[in-house]
Write a protein that binds this DNA or RNA. Structure first.
Length: 352
DNA sequence: AAGGCGGGGGC
DNA sequence: GCCCCAGCCTT
């Protein structure tokens, strides 16, 4: 296989089949020198970290409408950004997003650095995102390696070694294919291929522009690659949240979670820790006529959670959290677990 | 080097 | 149910 032939086939395919995405410059415009707005590229790439295109689109449009440029975002209130991010997951991304925007304004005159190293030094920008922005927004021949690229390279070159150990080898292979000309289009071509044809399961090898070059295809093992070391099974944990309602105005007691860790910086309801391996009863944050509203099930990255929801009508002033009346409280600003608990509690509070 | 960190969609 | 996803950060 000649690497240049693979690159040529990829770009030819991309010129015809490139997906139209809100943060992307189409290939015909790209070839005339037009480049994507670095802010849009950065915002989309951070949202796309471990997240599918379909899940990102609406969030991207809302962020762009509310904060059209990096200076607008840098000036935003933390709580507003976290609320706009609610539901997208991996909330450290939102905290780093804001920190990055403020660093770009404070330290770089409001313009993103154009080199991989400069980008890599910013909060929330790692090896992948730095390379992607450098290639797509600034035309640098950076080697862009994400899960799609790993999969395409493993199959194309028949790499049987398992991830994550095989990552350096796959990166070296990706480097061989990266062109000096149109590196951004090339990176996006590989990722489009991985998302639409060279998919994790049931790859559509019959319509793949690289089928003539693909070693895994020739050996009939495309669907088996890349190999991965088995992951540990998720344990199931138990916990409790207490949702207090003030009868006079229907306000709910909400508190902001600690800035780091699980659901860090996001609003939620007072709760136990979620370490228990069994559904043991937990102590409420203060005395009230607590009654069970039911259970919520949710799966995080590394454990399943069964969360008991208890509710009570509470009139006094609590020593933690804050009562937020319906006119102020926005349930869509909650992370999904807390939104599930809120929905369950709302049923329990209905007049019977 | 390993583990923490969301949520949704596909199968 | 399990797997994956345009990964990053901390320890």
């Amino acid at each position: 296989m000649r690497d240049a032939d693979v690159t040529r086939a990829l770009l030819d395919w991309y010129d015809i089949h490139a997906r139209s995405l809100p943060w992307r410059v189409p290939p015909d415009a790209s070839q005339t020198g037009q480049r994507a707005d670095p802010y849009r590229v950065w915002l989309s790439e951070v949202m796309l970290q471990q997240t599918t295109v379909a899940a990102v689109k609406d969030y991207f449009h809302r962020f762009m409408a509310r904060w059209p440029g990096v200076a607008d975002l840098a000036a935003a209130a933390d709580a507003d950004v976290m609320a706009e991010w609610a539901g997208l997951g991996y909330y450290a991304r939102a905290r780093n997003l804001l920190a990055c925007a403020r660093a770009v304004v404070a330290d770089h005159g409001g313009r993103f650095p154009e080199t991989e190293a400069g980008l890599r030094a910013l909060p929330g920008i790692g090896a992948y995102t730095a390379a992607a922005i450098a290639a797509i927004a600034f035309g640098r021949a950076a080697v862009v390696v994400d899960g799609n690229v790993e999969r395409v390279m493993a199959r194309l070159h028949g790499v049987r070694a398992p991830l994550p150990g095989a990552k350096p080898e796959l990166t070296a292979l990706a480097a061989r294919h990266t062109p000096q000309d149109r590196p951004g289009d090339h990176a996006q071509a590989v990722m489009d291929l991985g998302a639409t044809i060279c998919t994790p399961r049931n790859p559509a090898c019959g319509i793949c522009p690289l089928q003539a070059f693909c070693m895994a295809r020739a050996e009939g093992i495309a669907a088996e690659l890349p190999a991965k070391v088995p992951k540990a099974a998720k344990p199931t944990r138990h916990g409790t949240v207490w949702i207090a309602r003030r009868p006079v105005d229907g306000a709910l007691l909400v508190e902001r979670r600690p800035p780091r860790g699980l659901l860090g910086g996001m609003p939620g309801f007072p709760g136990s820790n979620w370490e228990s391996r069994s559904p043991a009863p937990a102590s409420p944050p203060f005395a009230a006529d607590w009654r069970p509203a039911g259970e919520v099930r949710h799966t995080f990255t590394h454990f399943h959670l069964i969360l008991s929801v208890e509710v009570a009508e509470v009139s006094g002033n609590p020593d933690r959290g804050e009562f937020l009346p319906p006119s102020v409280f926005d349930p869509t600003a909650l992370p999904t677990l807390m939104r599930k608990a809120h929905d369950l509690a709302s049923q329990a509070f209905l007049p019977r």
